[in-house]
């Protein structure tokens, strides 16, 4: 009987707590980093580890880098297909939450995508030529350690999905697009032909 009384108290306490919660329900809890970042995962993969050859893995990239990319997408400075339309949908604070969330995740090198029929396979011979090209064009001045290095201005490119890298080097060489990175990388890009840039993509994709 004594025990039962105590339990009754627990019930009352529970109800009170519930009522307090109900009272607070007019204002929803704030939006969280995972809530925002998970909306990206349909394309960029769970926790930012992409499963699609043309979608970049963004897990573990520096938050500051991700924030600047999103700002450039939203302003149109960085050309895109859909990212500009999406980036405009978030406030600066929300972008910061998204960037922090992906920065916390652990990078994983791209794996094969057996159910992709359009994916380009890494070609070892091309990768070798690409390695030479990165040396002659001094890509490794910023993309140090064969592309493993990353900082606030430089994304990791080693082990990134090949088709994403192919698109990016094609964009760099495309005068119609005016890619902002092309300014910084101009000297290097000018030195390399489209074929050599393709080889560079194969090289970085082949790195771990």
């Amino acid at each position: 009987m004594q025990q039962r009384k105590i339990r009754m108290l627990t019930v009352v306490g529970g109800l009170l707590a519930g009522m307090m919660l109900l009272g607070a329900s007019a204002a929803q809890a704030d939006i969280t980093g995972p809530m925002l970042a998970n909306t990206c995962a349909g394309c960029h993969g769970t926790n930012g580890i992409s499963g699609g050859p043309a979608m970049p893995t963004i897990a573990g990239m520096p938050a500051k880098y991700l924030k600047s990319i999103m700002a450039d997408f939203a302003s149109g400075k960085r050309p895109s297909t859909i990212m500009g339309r999406l980036a405009k949908g978030y406030s600066e604070a929300e972008i910061a939450l998204i960037a922090d969330e992906f920065a916390k995740q652990k990078w994983q090198n791209a794996k094969s995508a057996p159910q992709s029929k359009m994916a380009t396979a890494v070609d070892a011979k091309l990768a070798k030529e690409g390695e030479k090209a990165t040396k002659s064009a001094k890509c490794d001045k910023c993309h140090e350690d064969n592309g493993v290095f990353q900082d606030d201005d430089t994304p990791r490119v080693a082990g990134q999905w090949l088709d994403y890298l192919r698109f990016k080097v094609q964009d760099l060489k495309n005068p119609e697009l005016k890619v902002p990175q092309a300014d910084k990388m101009k000297a290097g890009i000018d030195k390399l032909s489209a074929e050599q840039l393709e080889a560079v993509a194969h090289f970085y994709a082949s790195q771990k």
């Binding site: 993969g45 769970t46 050859p53 043309a54 088709d163």
Partner: peptide
């Protein structure tokens, strides 16, 4: 053409997700 390949990659990623 890029969007065609993005379409297939979209599929790969969302199915993995």
């Amino acid at each position: 053409k890029q969007e065609a390949l993005y379409n297939e990659s979209w599929y790969q990623s969302i199915m993995a997700d």
